[in-house]
């Protein structure tokens, strides 16, 4: 069992930690003494083989390693045939964040497993991203877009959307004023807003 798999984009990445928390349903293959408490429904002190459990990816992946697998895994349904067909039909019409907020990141994690369903995941992600990217770009560049639309996107697309939007705003202000004006720091501005809100709360 190898514990060292590389971390993307780095060891401290919050998004990577949260995306590796997504759950994979597993079947225990080897009896694990003393870990019975992982399965809430059983009262035995040991985790018996054959138990089905939803384990987070960070635990499931090393347990499913090639040489000594403790568990066998099942690919979540959103990456399986039926859902794949929905995405192939029209990826833009899907509210991907309802499937999973970390659709892409978790998909990349899943593609590392040795499982027959996992080979197709990479292609699926690429196709889905390619067809949705134009839509996200359009939203980011169009001033008429409702800014809350970003909240309906999975994390990867949401970040792209917000970055695109920000750079668009910067471009507009540069074209209008030629730049050079000094702005209040972003953190200071946010801090003031919060302070004002607290003051108003106290007054009411």
């Amino acid at each position: 069992m190898s514990l060292c798999h590389s971390y993307m984009p780095n060891y401290f990445s919050i998004d990577d930690i949260l995306s590796s928390q997504e759950r994979v349903s597993c079947k225990i293959e080897v009896k694990l003494p003393g870990l019975g408490y992982l399965d809430v429904s059983s009262e035995s002190p040991d985790l018996q083989s054959g138990t089905k459990l939803d384990l987070p990816h960070w635990l499931a992946y090393p347990m499913n390693s090639r040489t000594h697998p403790f568990v066998s895994i099942e690919v979540p349904k959103i990456y399986k045939e039926a859902y794949r067909e929905i995405l192939t039909a029209d990826a833009c019409a899907v509210a991907l964040n309802k499937w999973s907020c970390y659709f892409y990141e978790f998909g990349i994690h899943l593609a590392q497993y040795e499982h027959s369903d996992c080979n197709l995941i990479q292609d699926l992600l690429l196709q889905a991203f390619k067809s949705r990217f134009r839509l996200v770009m359009d939203w980011a560049h169009n001033t008429g877009t409702d800014p809350t639309v970003g909240l309906q996107l999975p994390i990867l697309e949401r970040k792209l959307f917000l970055t695109g939007r920000k750079s668009r705003c910067l471009l507009i202000s540069w074209l209008k004023e030629g730049g050079g004006s000094i702005e209040t720091s972003e953190m200071v501005a946010n801090h003031k807003k919060r302070k004002r809100a607290e003051l108003e709360d106290e007054n009411t």
């Binding site: 009896k31 003494p33 870990l35 635990l59 347990m63 403790f70």
Partner: peptide
């Protein structure tokens, strides 16, 4: 049987 030890070790690393 050191399987549980490995599982716990992963939890510690996490």
């Amino acid at each position: 049987n050191y399987s549980s030890v490995r599982v716990r070790h992963m939890a510690i690393s996490r």
